[in-house]
Design a protein around this nucleic acid. Structure first.
Lengths: 170, 170
DNA sequence: GCCCTCATGTAATAAGTTACATGATTGA
DNA sequence: TCAATCATGTAACTTATTACATGAGGGC
């Protein structure tokens, strides 16, 4: 069937119930965005495409005079999502970390400057930890993933703190 | 000065000495690619742009009848790199992990299927560990970063293994 | 009245990958 | 001689972000 990776984010979010494009963006922003982000510029065109393929179905759902279009999964959409969940072929693991890049090239820097980079990197992860802690605890599988995220960013925060310490001692 | 993020990869690699575009790609592929990748489609045009700006300087450097163009940092290029290293403003931290995305939506799956996803994710990190272990041990700051990478992927491999175990026990 | 949130959408741009074309050298 | 590696480059495509335009409803 060949769907774009972000298409599955939408299908997955629609499994939770009928959603508007706006809803989906809100959901993404407080859940998957830490390991899979999506912008309006992707979501709205993708919704159109998924409807044309018959994987989702949209219907006008105005609130007062406020125009809204809410989407729901079709049976085909359910199947497409299930199939994707069961076939972990495309195992995308990408990372871009400008702090590590800087540190990689930092041999020309005084150790104190390198330590400052490590410190900033650690704080950045500590920020994510605080954000995740304040998110309403989810249920089911999403809890497992949130716990992973918390452990992950805590570990990174600690490890960068250790790196900072090591760099300070030359 | 506003350079593209990948431009700094090139400047950084040129600090190690005169390099061709091909050399830079090889260097990236066995070092920064784990946290900052770059393709030929980026490298060659970027080399042209950096030369136009006067940050690097290229010269024909044929090996036999084989055409080569080797680049070196100019004083301006040195300065641009140093300035970027010292100002950790743009702290990019991006991650895309299709395994976590699948697990996030996996509540509809039998636990055994979810466990399989966690297992595949763990193995993927274990593969990276093996790759990093086989890379020639670098010197200086790059060693610090490699050690971080090793610890990082080891931790992820362990944590996914633990998740797999938890999922198997329902 | 004004600002914030809800809500949809698009255009411009940036960023990056893949695939291909081209051609020389080296080593089995 | 044939495959692999060295070496440069571009075109087409995909993917994603940013910024903007538009407009309604709710609360102060």
């Amino acid at each position: 069937m060949e769907l774009s990776p972000t298409a599955y984010v939408i299908l997955g979010m629609l499994r939770l119930g009928k959603q508007t494009g706006y809803d989906i963006k809100q959901l993404v922003d407080k859940s998957t965005r830490f390991f899979w982000a999506a912008s309006y510029g992707q979501i709205y065109p993708e919704l159109k495409g998924l409807e044309e393929r018959g994987l989702i179905e949209g219907a006008a759902d105005p609130q007062g005079g406020r125009r809204r279009r809410a989407y729901a999964l079709t049976a085909e959409g359910q199947d497409a999502l299930d199939e994707w969940l069961k076939t972990p072929e495309d195992v995308t693991l990408e990372m871009r970390d400008s702090a590590l890049l800087r540190l990689f090239f930092a041999s020309s820097l005084p150790p104190a400057d390198a330590a400052a980079i490590a410190r900033a990197a650690g704080e950045r992860h500590a920020d994510v930890v605080r954000t995740l802690e304040q998110l309403d605890p989810p249920a089911g599988m999403t809890r497992t993933v949130r716990d992973f995220g918390l452990d992950f960013h805590r570990w990174c925060a600690d490890r960068f703190a250790q790196m900072e310490k090591d760099l300070k001692e030359h």
